[in-house]
Structure formats: C-alpha cells, structure tokens
Amino acid sequence: MALLTLVQDEVERVVAQAKHHFRRARPFMVDPALPHCGKGENALKAYPSGHAAFAWATAWTLAQLTPDHAAAVMARAQDYGLSREICGVHYASDVEASHGMATAAAQALLTDPRLAAMVAAARAEWPRP
C-alpha cells in the first residue's frame, strides 16, 4: 500500500500541473447538450484525466509487481479510462494523455534505486497463485 500511495501521490502531482497548464474544457462544457454522468465538474480540468491516470498508474504498478496478472489488470485500467469518455467528462485524448503520463511516472518510481527496497517488499507481499 505504501508503494501504491507513493505512486499515486506523484501521478496526482504531475496531472494537477498539466491540468493547470492546459485548462481544457470538458466535453459537456463545450456542448451543453451532450449527456454526461452526474453533475460533472464545471472546471477547466479535462486534460489529462485524473481518474484515468489513477487507473493507469495503479494498473502499471500492479502489473510490474505481478506480471502473471498484467494483461487483466491493464485491461481493467483501459475499461476505466473508457468509462470517463462514455460518461462525457473527458475526450479520448484526455484519457490517452493520462495513460502516458501515469505509466511514465509510475515506471520512473518503480525503477528508482532509492525505492528498490520498497518495490522488493511490495513484490514479496503479493500473493502468488
């Protein structure tokens, strides 16, 4: 959990910087007639998708810890990202940007020598089939 928290904190930081820089309107803000899930946040925060970034970073981290489950975990992250598009709160490019940013940030942390002991401990905790 400590490793996932660290990854999520870093991804959230990177995504927040990008959202602040790009200030992209959500699809339903551009076209108010578009249906969307729930109220939606009327803020210029569409790019990149924070929710999709969370899914991609978590999936990438878990896939590195347990390669036997990588395909299933990554497929779930892809589905989660797609749900953001289906809900009308993100464009496909928002979700894809999240994929790249989250994967790169998670991979950088997982390969950081300063975190090697934490990564090894997380791998050791993972239950094997």
Rank of each mutant, 00 (worst) to 15 (best):
A121L: 14
R114N: 13
A75I: 00
A59K: 02
D79E: 10
A92D: 08
D31I: 11
K45A: 09
L65W: 08
R24Q: 04
A97E: 06
P32L: 15
V89L: 10
L34M: 13
P48A: 10
D68G: 10
H36Q: 14
M101A: 03
R26M: 06
I86W: 07
K45P: 00
G40P: 01
A122Q: 14
Q107A: 13
T111Q: 15
A121W: 08
D94L: 12
Q78W: 02
G88I: 11
R26L: 05
R76W: 02
P113M: 12
R76S: 05
G88N: 14
H21F: 09
A33K: 15
A72C: 01
P27L: 11
T111H: 15
A52W: 02
A75D: 09
G100N: 07
A75W: 00
A55N: 02
R23H: 01
R114C: 07
T111A: 15
T66Y: 05
H51D: 14
K45L: 07
W126I: 11
V73Q: 08
S49M: 06
V30N: 04
A105F: 02
L82P: 00
R84N: 05
L34H: 11
H51P: 10
R123G: 11
A75C: 00
P27M: 09
P48D: 07
D68H: 09
N42R: 14
A121V: 12
C37P: 01
L65V: 08
D31C: 12
W126T: 14
L115T: 12
S49F: 04
P67R: 09
H36Y: 13
A117S: 14
C37F: 12
L82V: 11
H36A: 13
A124W: 03
S98P: 05
F54A: 04
D112I: 08
A53H: 01
A52P: 02
H69M: 11
H90Y: 07
W60A: 04
A106T: 12
A116F: 04
A104E: 14
Q78T: 06
M74A: 03
L44V: 00
G38Y: 07
R84W: 01
D68S: 14
H36R: 15
Q64S: 04
V30D: 06
R26K: 11
F28W: 09
A105E: 12
A72W: 00
E85S: 04
K39G: 03
A105R: 15
P35S: 15
F28R: 15
H51W: 10
L109W: 04
V30W: 00
E125F: 06
R114G: 12
Y91V: 03
A57L: 06
D94W: 05
A116M: 11
A53M: 01
H90S: 10
T103R: 11
P67G: 12
W56N: 03
M74E: 08
G40L: 05
Y80N: 13
T111P: 12
G50I: 00
S83N: 09
I86V: 14
A70S: 12
E125M: 15
D79W: 02
S98M: 04
W56L: 06
P27H: 06
A46W: 03
Y47W: 10
A106M: 09
H69T: 10
A104M: 11
A108S: 13
A46K: 09
L44C: 00
